[in-house]
């Protein structure tokens, strides 16, 4: 019984990874929609930036994780994309927020 389970372990793991990656991809897409939707509304600029951070940074990171689980052959590219996405997009939100403020003379 346990031998059969062990022999089947790679298949089970692969199926598990497929399922998890599907969940991650769906969640990322959900974040994209939920974060982009307030752009259409009348919220203030900084509030929109908060939502944009959710959709573009966190949602895209979830999607990349899902892809990483599914296609392991291209992992260097995906890891690089993940790193540059998270760091760059976060700093980018900061720059957009800081530049929209009128410059203070101190």
């Amino acid at each position: 019984m346990s031998g059969a389970l062990l022999a089947d372990a790679p298949g089970v793991l692969a199926a598990l990874a497929q399922g998890a990656s599907a969940v991650l991809l769906g969640l990322g897409l959900l974040f994209w929609f939920a974060g982009s939707w307030p752009l259409l509304g009348r919220a203030s600029y900084l509030t929109k930036l908060h939502y944009l951070g959710i959709s573009d940074t966190l949602g895209s990171a979830l999607m990349l994780l899902g892809l990483l689980l599914r296609f392991q052959r291209e992992w260097p590219l995906l890891v690089l994309a993940l790193l540059s996405l998270v760091v760059w997009n976060t700093i980018f939100g900061y720059v957009l927020a800081a530049c929209s403020q009128p410059r203070r003379r101190s």
């Binding site: 982009s36 752009l39 930036l49 944009l52 590219l77 957009l96 929209s100």
Partner: peptide, 29 residues
């Protein structure tokens, strides 16, 4: 113009993500 810039930033990130997904699905480095 600032709202427009934020939207453009979103477009830029999203287009790049679509490119990545398509490339990975088609197995094209």
């Amino acid at each position: 113009v600032w709202h427009r810039l934020a939207a453009f930033a979103s477009v830029s990130t999203k287009v790049a993500m679509v490119m990545l997904v398509v490339s990975v699905v088609r197995d094209d480095w």
